[in-house]
Design a protein around this nucleic acid. Sequence first.
DNA 1: CAGCGCCCCTGCCCGC
DNA 2: TGCGGGCAGGGGCGCT
Length: 271
Amino acid sequence: MPELPEVETTLRGISEHILNSPITKVTIRNSSLRWPVPKEIIEHVTHQKIISTQRRAKYLLLKTPKGTIIIHLGMSGSLRILPPQTPYEKHDHVEFCFANGNALRLKDPRRFGAVLWTGDAIHKHPLFRHLGVEPLTEDFTADLLYNLSRNRKVAIKQFIMDSKVVVGVGNIYANEALFASGINPKRAAGKISLQRYVKLCTQIKRILKLAILQGGTTLKDFVGGTGKPGYFKQELLVYGRKGEPCSVCQNTLKEIRQGQRSTVYCTHCQN
DNA sequence: CAGCGCCCCTGCCCGC
DNA sequence: TGCGGGCAGGGGCGCT
């Protein structure tokens, strides 16, 4: 479910409720997520405070003085702030209770998400070592995309979804950014000009920022940390619109599969 | 290394 | 109305 804007929305929603209050209890109801939720996390974080929160790629990082809780929402995960003793629902897998009365609870029906712990610097962790640049920083530039893509045969859509290149661009926003840039998703990344990468880079930033402002995209049941849905769905121009007329030229939007993921685009506007 | 497919899992939607 | 098939916002991993 969540791409960068949804993860960012979640982080913003939960942070103020969990910062600087001792963790009183950790409950692991089902440890079989993407990787087993390490039991040691309980002894490591109980009585600790979260002193800062941040996002790296689609990972949420909750820092304590002893290390970092790493949370990934996978395809169907959501984190909510709940009052104490809220009855568990199906797929509520992990919960952190705080002295201030708040509970932070992970629900994840498909269990592709993760809750991990590291006592080390985050950049040393294997999951983070090979991550590319953050798209909403000045390090993410057209020059970077251009240079990394030389001699690459992969389709541009898969190239911008490659987390070794740039992080946080998932299927929805890859589709939207390519449409906004007028680039055919099948075009080889290595054959795209610097000028077109300027456009693409600009559009990726614009769309991600706009989606964050709208609280993310709610497709099925995504809610930010405070339970509000996202409103970016109404801005989607191609994703989920196979067979509908292109908003620019009225040509019928086409759907193809790239790397087991659906791509929707306009064969007239994108080339 | 690049470039692929596969797979983890549940829920929902569609067509018959 | 019931059921099987296919698809879903991610991404690590193993193979060629």
